[in-house]
């Protein structure tokens, strides 16, 4: 099951970035998880193994359908700002932070919506409204007993992480 989800998620992320931002995105380190992530702080790792510096934005969406859980997008703030400027066709210095946060939430919304529509093409999933926060530390919100698929990507020379935590 996790292999299918991982492959579908990679395909969805590529499609969203290429279509909306005209950016090529590639996977870097991949971690397919059933092991608990307790005690192992998450990282965003780019193609060359470099670690993206804080701050980050974390956008979280709850999903409910055949399975339930949370999908979290972790994106370096600088990258989010560049993507927002690109998305809206404006200069970075014209952007209020609220718009950058909104874009990160909408990006996660597109990823989640596309991913879960593919995972259940007939009924789809119910999704919550994205909650986006600015964070300094990449602390994990994954519960030890949960099953999580975590993917690292590289875009525009920076790392980005998608974490899909299944609760049932």
């Amino acid at each position: 099951m996790f292999k299918d989800i991982r492959e579908t998620a990679i395909s969805v992320v590529s499609k969203v970035f290429e279509t909306m931002f005209y950016l090529f995105i590639e996977t870097s380190e991949e971690v397919e998880g059933t092991e608990p992530s307790k005690g192992k702080p998450p990282q965003i790792i780019g193609k060359q193994g470099e670690k993206s510096p804080p701050p980050f934005l974390r956008s979280e969406i709850g999903f409910q359908g055949k399975n339930s859980g949370k999908i979290r997008l972790y994106i370096p703030y600088d990258l989010a700002r560049r993507l927002t400027a690109n998305f809206m066709g404006v200069e970075e210095n014209e952007l209020p932070e609220s718009q950058v946060m909104d874009m990160a939430g909408e990006l996660n919304n597109m990823l989640a919506g596309n991913l879960f529509s593919l995972l259940d093409k007939t009924n789809g999933y119910q999704l919550t409204v994205p909650i986006t926060e600015r964070i300094v530390d990449l602390e994990t919100k994954d519960r030890p007993e949960s099953s999580t698929v975590t993917l690292n990507f590289n875009v525009d020379n920076q790392g980005l992480k998608l974490s899909i935590q299944f609760e049932s």
Partner: peptide
């Protein structure tokens, strides 16, 4: 204009 792609919806 939506991410929703399930057939039923």
């Amino acid at each position: 204009i939506t991410t929703e792609g399930s057939e039923n919806r």
